[in-house]
Structures are given as structure tokens and as C-alpha cells.
Nucleic acid binder design. Structure first.
Lengths: 356, 356
DNA sequence: ACGCACTCCGTAAACGTTTACGATACTATG
DNA sequence: CATAGTATCGTAAACGTTTACGGAGTGCGT
């Protein structure tokens, strides 16, 4: 006899079962949508669970069925990332969740501490079986994490492409496309000496961008000059530094492509200091459109994309590589480059007439 | 006899035990630093665990001892947050982790999906017992989450103070101090009509800031004018809107204090459009120093603080309210306002001579 | 009346760990 | 030598679920 007590916090499935005068097995089956349970009792169970606020204990569940219903997103909160990502991760996360939530999967973010090796951190998380699948980001040129996850047989996908030989799912921004588009545009405006920036750290996207740049130049029959590839931190300060190095060159480039939107701020400042005006004396093309670079005068030419949709794509790619969800997202191609769209500004809107 | 096989992934403590010819109880005790185990065998166990890469399964462990060794940080990735937080959370997270890691606690971030009610989301996470303790942020004026966590007897702390009657641990920026300092400074420069911005959403910090503003005015014997408290979104666009509204006022203020650094960008732009120059025609004081507002000309007067250290403080406050760690961090005061330091710029560096 | 298929539900065994308890061997003490 | 105490370890019972298995009841055809 239920005494209609106030809805106190549930202790476990056992209590819920005896509240209903049903065996715990039936309760479990009812909650999990198993077929062999009367539709009538299922309703009763669901109602009681709702009323008493019962939710299955995650530890018990995952211990039994070996699955956590959790997807982990590992992020490195290195100083550089924190200062420059411009909420990159939070935006992508929104897209990821919109897919995962459809399957009752919860996304958790796993921030690797600054003072811990990302590999060791991931190893710990994997061994603890804290998540069913992983998304990793900021992949390095040689990244042991791929092997780690593969050996542990944990499905994973990377935010950012792989350059090592290992074949695995990823989604990444189309650096190639950006480099091509930017260079096409600059060349059409008469530029021949075009510099680019590339990150100081050993991160994949730097190589990809530089490679796209090299090939685009080749396509236009322009010689590749290593002096024009400038390594700098991906920050406002880095942009300042890039400008500084450009000004030091004896044979100055007439255009520069930045790999981080933020850099434009510092670059503008340094250029202004030297009385060189972007869009008049030098052409500047930024990478990703960002709210914080919108104020720049003259307006920065850059590229726009939906990071939310990139997240959606990445989530689907990941699920398609998980046996339990493969039939829902039967992707054949699990490696995607995500397009960006040119947003023309004024920072490169001038034609080169004579040399120099 | 161990055959010196390759270190394959461990199946469980059982395998590790029979590898060592020891009972699983002893292995567990050895790994967990229990006293009643021979120092010699402990070394053997630790060595074998290291070599075979054994890490205790989290589900089994938490099921048994009812603890997860995980601290959850709930964040709402609402559009507004994403665009404006300027990596606020990632920075605070660094501070949090530096404390937690000392106690083998892992921090995970729980991003509440946009389309889910934060209360329901937290309820789910709590019921699943995914973490031992919680940190919540963006607390509302009336926030049911406090009661939820209290009833569930889950230790928690808030990033951002509480305004409801409930007594609970929090750490927050010193909005009062900022309002006081800003107004003192402005009044010293001769200003009497001073406007402030406050968030459009029902978030606590808005009320705190407005209240500090009101009291500071009172202290200087300046009448409070509700028309000078302008609600706007905490973004660049919001700043533009604030400027717009200020310009519309018949009796224009001579100074304005912004609650988000980003707003300064939009405000500057709108002011410039109206040929009103910050630092000459109107005094502008920003709130938190931010890399992305550094470029502003004239330089924005604002306030600096270490979000990392705020995270450290918050972590210690949380731990002090957890029975297991209380003896390590015996805090008496679990509600802290975190100081900010004035960074004088040019945006308010003029003295008012005559009225208007 | 009998067997069979089907629906629904209870029972109990897992999942991997920690830990209370008791057992054993050894040492010190009387 | 008997006894108590100590150090070390093995045993088994939990923790809260899910799920394979089997049993009870029902309906139906022969």
C-alpha cells in the first residue's frame, strides 16, 4: 500500500519496485523500453519514476552493460588555446550536442590540465572508462593519442585532420580551400609576393595551411619563398610580430594571409605604427570571421563558416563509427573538410599597378 | 609464472591479481594506499599495474564506494554566453584544476544544451550521480538549482554570488568594488550624470552591479536616475545599442560604465559615428580587461583580475564544504568577492569643466 | 484433454571494485 | 610454554543495474 508520501529522493530501483509491488526486473525493462512488458505496467512505472524523480544510477548501469552513454570531448586548456579560441569549442559543442541529445548521449568536456601531458591524461580517462567514445582536438603532427584510442578500441573522432598515416574519422576546416581562394583573389589583384602566417606550435592545421598555400602558389606558377612563411603565436601579439617581421624583410611582400582572425588586430596596429595602411599599402586576408575583429578599419577580408554545423557533422561522423549507431548514420566518408565562405572586406580591395 | 608477455590492456583487478599470485583484496588495498599491506608487495603491485597499464574501472569503484572522484562544472552554452564569455570559463577552469588535481579529483565540464532547461539538465546529472560535487554558474535571481542540490545533499559552490536567501558557498567578482572605484574616479573628474549598462537577462550579476552603482551614487549624494540604467545584451552589439540609447536621451550623461568589456567596441563605434569621442566628449569605463578590447583608441579604462586565481579560490571554497576535504581547507568564510584592479586608460581621462 | 505459442513477469547471476571480517603466521611478553 | 598482540593477507559480501532464463498464465487449435 503506497501511503502517498511526499516525493522524497529515490534510493534505487529496488525502492521504486516495491513501491509499485513489482519486481525490479520488470521495472528495469519498463524503463529501458524492452518489449516484453505490459504497456499498462510500463505506463505505471514511468509515471512513478517521474513522480518520485528516479533516474538510474549511472555507475550501476555502466558497470553492468559496459557503456556509459557519455561522449567525451577532450580539450587542452593551454594558454594559447584559451586566449585565442574565441569560444571555438563552446560553439562546436552546441552542434555536437544537438546530435547526441537525440540519442540520449551526454557530452562532457574533459579539460586536460596545463601541467599534465595530454597523452597521459587521455590514458587515464580511457582506462577509467569515463566515456564510450572520444573526440579529441588540437591534434599534433605525431600524436600518440590515435594509437592509444585505437588499441583501447574506443571509438573516436578528431576535430582537426590527421597527418600521420593512421586512418581515422575527423572533421576539419577546409584550409586548402581558404588558401586557394585567398591566393586566387590576391593574384587576381596583381599580387605575386604573398606571405602567410603559421602557428608556432606543432599543431596539424599549421602544416595543412602551409601546404595548401604552397600548392596554390604552384598552381599560379609563383615560386615558393620560405622567408614568407612566418611562424608566430596565434594571438593579437602574434599578429604584431608577423607585421614586425614583414617590415624587416628587404623584399617586402604585398599581401599577407593570416591563419587566425585575432592576429589581424595586432598586425593592423603594427602596420599603422609604420604608416602602412592595410587595404592600401598591403593586402590583408584573415581566416575565420570573428565578432571581435569586426570593428577593424578597413574591414577585414576573411572567411565565414558555421562552427555549429561543423559540430553536427563531427558528431554524425563519430556516431557512424560506433557499432551501436552505425545503422543510423551510415557514412561512407568519415573524413570531412568543412567549407568556408569568403566575406569580402576592404583590407585587400586594391589592385597592384606597378611592381612594389 | 609470468611469461613476460607484451603489456596488453588489462581486463580487471582480477587479472592483475592472478598475474601477481595475490588476492584481489590485497591488490586493491595496495593500490589505494591502505595501511595493512606489506611495503614489499605494495611495490610489486604498483610496478605491475604501471607496466600492464591497469587503472581501476571507475564504474565499479564508484558503485562500491559511492564516490566518483569527479567534480562537475555546469555551464550554459547559451548564445549570449558563447559570444561573450571570452574564454572566461576555460580560464577559471585552469585555476580549479590546479587545486583539484592535488587531490586526484578530475574536473569535467557539463555543458547544458541550449534547448534544455538548466534545471532539468542538472537534475538529470545529479540523479545519475555523475559527480561528487558541482559548480554552477550564471545563477539567476531565483534559481531552483540551489534547492535541488541542497536536497540531493550534493556539495556545491556557485561561480557568481547568490541573491536569494539560501546560504551557500560562492565566489564572485567584486562588482561593488568596481562600481565604487569607477564612480569615485568619475566623480573626482567632475561627473554627476553617470550611466551604467546592465544585462538584459535575469542574471544575478546585473542586479549586483546595479545595486553597487546605486549605493555609490548615494554615497556621493547624487540622485539615482533609473533612465541611466540601460539594459542591453552583453555583446558588441549591446554596446552599440547602449550608445544609441544614450544619444537619444535629452539630458545626456557625461559618463558611462559598461558591465562587459566587449560592449566597449560597439559603443565606441556608435559614438564615433555621432562624432562623439570617448575620452573627450564622454567618459567610458569598461569592466574586465580583455585582450580583444586592448586595441581600442583611446585606450579603455577598465579593471584587471586573475580569473585563474578566482578559480583557485572557488575550488578551495568548494572543497572546504565537502566533509572529506574539510580538514584540509578549513575555511570559515565560504562567500568571497574577488578584487579587481583599476587599469587606467584614456577613455575617461578628462576633467569636466562646465556643466554639460 | 492435450500441446503449443505467446505474453508477461520474477529470479538470480553477472559487471569490477572496495572493505569488513576473520585467518594465519610471527613476535613479544608473561 | 601459553598468551596476547601485530602484521599481512584471503574471503566474501556488498554497491545498483541489466538481462538471460525459466515459470505462470492465457488463448487456440487439434
Amino acid at each position: 500500500m503506497a501511503h502517498g508520501g511526499t516525493p522524497r529522493p529515490m534510493k534505487g530501483i529496488r525502492q521504486l519496485a516495491e513501491h509499485l509491488d513489482i519486481s525490479i526486473g520488470t521495472v528495469s525493462r519498463a524503463l529501458n523500453g524492452k518489449p516484453d512488458v505490459n504497456e499498462e505496467t510500463r505506463k505505471r512505472v514511468l509515471a512513478a519514476a517521474e513522480q518520485l524523480g528516479y533516474v538510474a544510477n549511472q555507475s550501476g548501469r555502466s558497470l553492468r552493460q559496459g557503456t556509459t552513454n557519455v561522449i567525451g570531448l577532450m580539450i587542452q586548456s593551454s594558454k594559447e588555446t584559451v586566449e585565442n579560441s574565441d569560444n571555438f569549442f563552446l560553439t562546436v559543442t552546441g552542434g555536437l550536442q544537438s546530435v547526441f541529445s537525440r540519442h540520449n548521449l551526454d557530452l562532457i568536456m574533459l579539460p586536460c590540465p596545463n601541467d599534465e601531458d595530454p597523452y597521459e591524461y587521455l590514458k587515464r580517462m580511457v582506462a577509467r572508462r569515463i566515456a564510450d567514445a572520444m573526440i579529441i582536438s588540437e591534434t599534433q603532427r605525431v600524436d600518440k593519442r590515435f594509437d592509444l584510442l585505437a588499441k583501447a578500441k574506443i571509438p573516436f573522432a578528431a576535430l582537426g585532420r590527421s597527418l600521420s598515416g593512421t586512418q581515422h574519422p575527423w572533421a576539419d576546416l577546409d584550409f586548402d580551400g581558404v588558401a586557394n581562394c585567398a591566393i586566387d583573389r590576391l593574384v587576381a589583384h596583381g599580387h605575386r609576393r604573398i606571405a602567410i602566417s603559421t602557428p608556432a606550435s606543432d599543431i596539424n592545421l599549421g602544416f595543412v595551411f602551409a601546404e595548401g598555400y604552397r600548392r596554390a602558389l604552384e598552381r599560379h606558377g609563383i615560386a615558393y619563398d620560405p622567408a614568407l612563411v612566418i611562424r608566430a603565436k596565434s594571438s593579437e601579439q602574434g599578429g604584431y610580430q608577423v607585421a614586425d617581421e614583414l617590415l624587416r624583410l628587404e623584399d617586402r611582400p604585398t599581401a599577407v594571409i593570416l591563419i587566425y582572425e585575432l592576429m589581424a588586430i595586432g598586425l593592423y596596429r603594427r602596420m599603422m605604427e609604420a604608416d602602412i595602411i592595410p587595404g592600401r599599402d598591403i593586402a590583408v586576408v584573415g581566416f575565420r570571421e570573428a565578432p571581435r575583429a569586426k570593428f577593424l578599419q578597413p574591414a577585414l577580408t576573411c572567411f565565414r563558416t558555421s562552427l555549429h554545423d561543423l559540430g553536427v557533422e563531427l558528431a554524425e561522423i563519430l556516431l557512424s563509427s560506433m557499432p551501436a549507431y552505425n545503422h543510423i548514420y551510415p557514412k561512407t566518408n568519415r573524413q570531412t573538410t568543412w567549407p568556408l565562405e569568403l566575406v569580402p572586406g576592404e583590407s585587400d580591395a586594391f589592385h597592384l599597378t606597378a611592381a612594389k
